[in-house]
Structure formats: C-alpha cells, structure tokens
C-alpha cells in the first residue's frame, strides 16, 4: 500500500519536478519498494501519453530520409550540427585573424631571433671547442713534462738509493791509521781505507823518508785466513815531502783486514816480507 505522500512524490518524480534532497530520498526508497516502482512505472506510461494532447503537428517530410542517411555517420553529423549551432559572429573571425597575424609575426620574430641565437651559440661552441682542445694539449704537455720529471726523480731516487747504499757500504770499509815503527821516521803517518766489496783500497802517506834507488815501500794486508800477510803492492813517495797517494789491490781475495803494514823492500817488491816494517796500523 502506498500512502498519498508517496503517490504525490511519484507523480512529481515522473514529471521531473523533484529536486535535491527530496529527489534523493525518493530514489532511495524507490530502489527498495516494488509497489512504488510499479506506481512510478504506470505513472511514467501515463504521462508519456500526454504527448498526444499536444496540437497535432507533422515533422518535415524529409526528416525521415535525412535521419536514415545519417545513421551511419551520426557522430559526424552531430559534431557538424553542433558547429553550426555555435556559429560565431563576424567580429570573432576578424579577432581570430588579427590574433593569427600577431601570432605569425611573433613566431617569425622568434624564428629570426632563434637563428641569430643559434649562430651565436655555434660560435660559442667553436670557441669552447678550441679552448677544450687547447686545454687538452696543455694537459698533454704537462703530462709529458710530469712523466719526464717523474723519470728524472725516479732516476735521482735510484741514484740516491745507490748513494745511500754506497754510504751504507762505507760502514763496512776498513779504515786504519798506520804509525811508524822505526825510530828514524817518527813523523811518518799513513791512512789506509779498504773497500771489501770492491776488493781495493786507498793509501795515503806523509813524511815517509825518501827511498834509495833500489828500494820500494811495499803494503801488506793481514788477513787471518792466510798464514802470512797478503801483498798489497809497492809504492814510492815524493822525495821532497814523503807523501804518496795510491790505490791498491791485494793479490789474493781478502775477507777481513786485521792490519795494514808497510815494509821497506828491494825494488819491485817481494812475495813475502823480508825488509824492516816501517808502518803498522793501530
């Protein structure tokens, strides 16, 4: 059973006279009320019949044919019709043309400007490329110089290393001062330095007495591994000053130099000391 209120609402609903909350509430109830749905259905059918109360009127005779022609292109036809319905006044066309002209001028100006800008950018790019190439060349040069300097420094380091190594070797040198053993040469003095790595040495003497023509001074190296001193060679001194500076070698491999000794021997030296010992290391 439908009350009068809802009959009234249904009547207004089918005529499209409900609005807002009233419409929303009615549709909410309608969705769940079968009797109300039936009433709305009947009233909608009834109101549709009111179309026949309008004065009789014939649509244009060609409307049917036109519609049939347009069925396949209904969408296109609608679009065209909408365009016609929204026909614009003449001034709008002139305004559009003016806008187009302004836009064309603006675009043209933009085009010219952009060409100039592009040329400028190209120049800037060329300069940048040149600067880049220069920078690369400079870097290459600096790299070569740096490599050279590195090689040089490496060499210097190697040299320094060798020097340091040599200096290290000095610690192994045997340096001895030789003093006189004869009373006739109390001022005589000698320094002997032996490099075991190179198996050679240096001897510097001062104030040794001048030699007779048939005599030589002979240097001896005392190595414990040998039963007798090893021959280090003969030398003479400056008759005026008694000085001499010689580089000497032993005639046998030397492991350790315990003493240096200088004896007075016949000219050319002897394999085993025979004459008097004139200098002996301390």
């Amino acid at each position: 059973m439908i009350d009068e209120l809802h009959e009234e609402l249904a009547s207004l609903y089918v005529l499209g006279l409900l609005e807002g909350d009233e419409l929303a509430r009615f549709e909410q109830r309608l969705a769940h009320d079968a009797a109300l749905q039936r009433l709305v259905h009947d009233l909608r059918e009834t109101t549709s019949q009111l179309a026949f109360t309008a004065p009789a009127a014939e649509p244009p005779p060609d409307l049917r044919a036109r519609l049939l022609d347009r069925l396949d292109t209904a969408a296109t036809w609608r679009a065209q019709r909408n365009l016609i319905a929204f026909r614009t006044p003449l001034w709008v066309a002139w305004a559009a043309a003016a806008c187009l002209a302004i836009m064309c001028a603006w675009v043209g100006q933009l085009y010219v400007g952009s060409r100039f800008e592009a040329a400028t950018l190209r120049d800037q790019q060329a300069v940048a490329d040149f600067q880049l190439r220069s920078a690369r060349n400079q870097l290459e040069a600096e790299r070569i110089i740096a490599n050279h300097q590195l090689s040089s420094m490496t060499e210097q380091l190697a040299s320094l290393d060798r020097q340091l190594k040599a200096e290290g070797d000095l610690a192994k040198f045997k340096i001895s001062t030789l003093v006189s053993l004869a009373g006739n040469t109390p001022q005589a003095l000698a320094v002997a330095v032996w490099n075991p790595a190179k198996q050679e040495g240096v001897l510097t003497v001062e104030k040794l007495p001048a030699l007779a023509a048939d005599k030589d001074y002979q240097l001896w190296l005392v190595d414990p591994q040998y039963p007798i001193p090893v021959d280090g060679g003969v030398f003479t001194v400056d008759p005026a000053t008694g000085e001499a500076h010689i580089t000497f070698k032993a005639n046998k491999p030397i492991k350790t130099v315990a003493k240096f000794a200088v004896s007075l021997e016949r000219k050319g030296g002897v394999p085993k000391a025979e004459g008097p010992m004139v200098l002996l290391s301390q």
């Binding site: 009068e4 009959e7 009234e8 009547s11 207004l12 089918v14 005529l15 006279l17 039936r38 259905h41 009947d42 009233l43 059918e45 009834t46 109101t47 019949q49 009111l50």
Partner: peptide, 15 residues
C-alpha cells in the same frame, strides 16, 4: 498533480 495523474492512469489504463 497527484490526483490528475492517478485519474488519468485509471482512465487510460495501466502497464
């Protein structure tokens, strides 16, 4: 409106 439509419905027929 309500009374008019209901009466028309009754006169013109239902569904």
């Amino acid at each position: 409106i309500r009374r008019g439509l209901l009466r028309l419905r009754d006169t013109l027929g239902g569904r």
